[in-house]
């Protein structure tokens, strides 16, 4: 019988940089779990070291486990921020709301966000391994 195929509304994928919603959704949840674990760890660490000294702090970050954990948290933060802010730009910086200049504006904003994120990522990684 006729046309059996699902003709779903396919979204122009250029602006989502080839990711699917499922991937984004999973990354957001996973990165949130990593960030939560990292935060909890730090809070507990602070509670157990009420008079935290610079030496103790350096010691903590001297272990490769902590460095790895920190890099992981940093990556989680970067991807979490990127997905979140990308969603914000595609919600509010649209031709629907701003007219034809929106596409350019959105790309600029996304570039700025990316630059910022990569900047933080770089500085963060340096700080951890210095």
């Amino acid at each position: 019988m006729g046309n059996g195929a699902v003709r779903a509304a396919r979204v122009a994928s250029a602006s989502s940089f080839g990711r699917t919603g499922v991937q984004d959704w999973l990354v957001q949840r996973l990165s949130a779990v990593v960030l939560l674990a990292y935060t909890l760890f730090l809070v507990i660490f602070f509670l157990r070291h009420p008079q935290l000294s610079y030496m103790e702090w350096r010691e903590l970050f001297a272990t490769s486990a902590m460095r790895l954990f920190s890099v992981l948290a940093l990556l989680a933060l970067a991807s979490h921020a990127w997905i979140g802010l990308w969603a914000v730009t595609t919600d509010y910086l649209t031709t629907r709301l701003l007219g034809s200049r929106a596409t350019l504006l959105r790309l600029l904003a996304q570039c700025a966000v990316l630059l910022l994120i990569f900047g933080y990522l770089g500085v963060g990684t340096l700080a951890i391994f210095r």
Partner: peptide, 18 residues
């Protein structure tokens, strides 16, 4: 019987995940 096609049509970042 078209679950797979239906789901594939909704997996992008906008259709459902917005």
């Amino acid at each position: 019987t078209a679950d797979e096609e239906r789901l594939a049509g909704l997996e992008d970042a906008f259709s459902l995940f917005r």
